[in-house]
Every structure is written in C-alpha cells, then in structure tokens.
C-alpha cells in the first residue's frame, strides 16, 4: 500500500528559477490553471444561448449567481454588492478546486496551506483596503471599538489586531484540514480495496458512499469559506 500522503506531494513540471527563487510550474499550479480555465469554459458553454426565459443549461449558472448574490446581500448588505464579483470568484474557484481534487490522478491544491493561505491573505488585504477606502480613518475603530476607555487601549488594540490577523489563518486551516482528512481517508480505504482481494467489495461500497460525502464536503467548505469572507467583509464595512 502506498503512502496516503504521497498525493499531496508537489512535483515541479517545468523548472524555472528567477533571482535565486524557485518558481517552477508545479502540479499544484497546473491544477489551479485547469480549474480556472475549466470554470471559464464551462460558464461560456452553459451561457452560449442567452434568453430571457432560461433553458436548463442557462439556469445552472444563474442559480449559482443568485445564490451567492443573496448570500452577499444578507451577510454584507446592499453596499457589499459592489464586491460581489470577488466573492463569487472566490466561491467558484474553491468549490471547483475541491471538486477537481476528487478526480483520480488529479491534485487537490486546496489541501495546501500555501495555496489557500495565499488566497486568505489576499482576502484579508482586500478587506482592509475596502475598509480604509470606505471609512477612511474610521477604519481604525476596528482596533478600538466604541465604549472602551482609552486607558485600556494598550491592551485592546493588540488583542483586536491579533484577532484580525488570525482570521485568514483560521479560514485556511478549516478548509485545508477538511480537504486533507477526506483525501487521506479515501486513499486508505482505496488501499484496503486492493489488499483484501474479493472481500475488497466491502470497503469499495463504503468508499462509494464516502466519495459522495466528500463531494458534499467540497461544496460545503467552499460555501463556509465564502460565508465567513462575507462576514469579515461586513466587519470591514461597518463599525461594531
């Protein structure tokens, strides 16, 4: 039975070094590229005939669009709809990345802290920029909520700052842990199927159920990631 962690190994496909940094095109980068290109092609294909009364193909992206639109509207409010495209892209990218990872011989880039962490840091920077742009100096109120005496500022400001900085980390860990655990479990069960011979049908049945569950988890985690990004965005837009 091969190592269940082998699937998370990053292998460079095209070697490239810039100023001493290794920027090789890896299998992780390939998975990200395929995911992004696939989303664009899928949406272009489904939306090729645009009519007022949508047919089945058109209604799928429209339902997704409306779902995220309502999510942003309820969690961030009307003023958050300006940033809808960012949230929508985030959701699609993570959801399709998770689902793409479930295919045999593919690579789950969402199981890497570096990939998801980069995305979360981008979301944090985006939130800070949106907050500063909309509230100017009032954004600093995030670090010292109203009603707290200034004498407590040396204690409250670092706590709020750490709380803000820990958000992308907890977002990342949640998604990465879920993806990693699911894929390790699938791999171990897959090993049992081969090792048990004829009796392998039992773990095979079990695995077919688990993979359906994993599909559900893949979309659910993308949804949770999106909801929490929305909540952090609404925190940035509004004072406490």
């Amino acid at each position: 039975m091969s190592n269940p962690l082998e699937q998370f190994e990053i292998k460079p496909l095209a070697h490239l070094h810039l100023h001493g940094y290794d920027v090789s095109f890896s299998n992780s980068a390939l998975a990200m590229t395929i995911t992004s290109v696939f989303i664009v092609i899928l949406f272009a294909f489904l939306l090729r005939k645009r009519t007022i009364i949508p047919n089945l193909a058109q209604s799928i992206p429209e339902a997704l669009y409306e779902f995220i639109y309502n999510l942003v509207k309820t969690n961030v409010g009307k003023q958050g709809l300006k940033y809808f495209s960012f949230i929508f892209c985030l959701f699609l990218y993570i959801a399709f990345g998770n689902l793409f990872g479930l295919f045999p011989y593919s690579f789950t880039f969402t199981s890497h802290i570096a990939a998801v962490g980069g995305l979360s840091l981008l979301a944090l920077l985006f939130n800070i920029c949106v907050g500063v742009y909309n509230r100017k100096l009032g954004y600093l109120r995030t670090f010292l909520p109203k009603g707290i005496p200034y004498a407590l500022a040396p204690l409250v400001v670092p706590i709020e700052a750490i709380s803000l900085l820990s958000k992308p980390f907890s977002l990342t860990v949640r998604l990465v842990a879920n993806m990693t655990v699911g894929h390790i479990m699938l791999k171990i069960l897959g090993g049992f199927v081969v090792a048990l011979g004829v009796l392998g049908i039992v773990p095979l049945l079990f695995q077919s159920l688990i993979i359906i569950f994993e599909m559900f988890i893949a979309v659910l985690q993308a949804f949770i990631y999106t909801v929490l990004s929305c909540i952090y965005l609404s925190d940035a837009l509004r004072s406490h």
């Binding site: 750490i162 900085l165 820990s166 907890s170």
Partner: peptide
C-alpha cells in the same frame, strides 16, 4: 471544531508575531 480552530489560530498568530 470550528471554535477550537478560532482559539488556536489566534494563539498561533500571537506566538508568530
């Protein structure tokens, strides 16, 4: 599980800074 991640991530970030 989510709450424990919230707690641990803040401690970890504080430690890192």
């Amino acid at each position: 599980f989510q709450m424990s991640i919230e707690l641990l991530s803040a401690v970890f970030i504080g430690f890192c800074i």
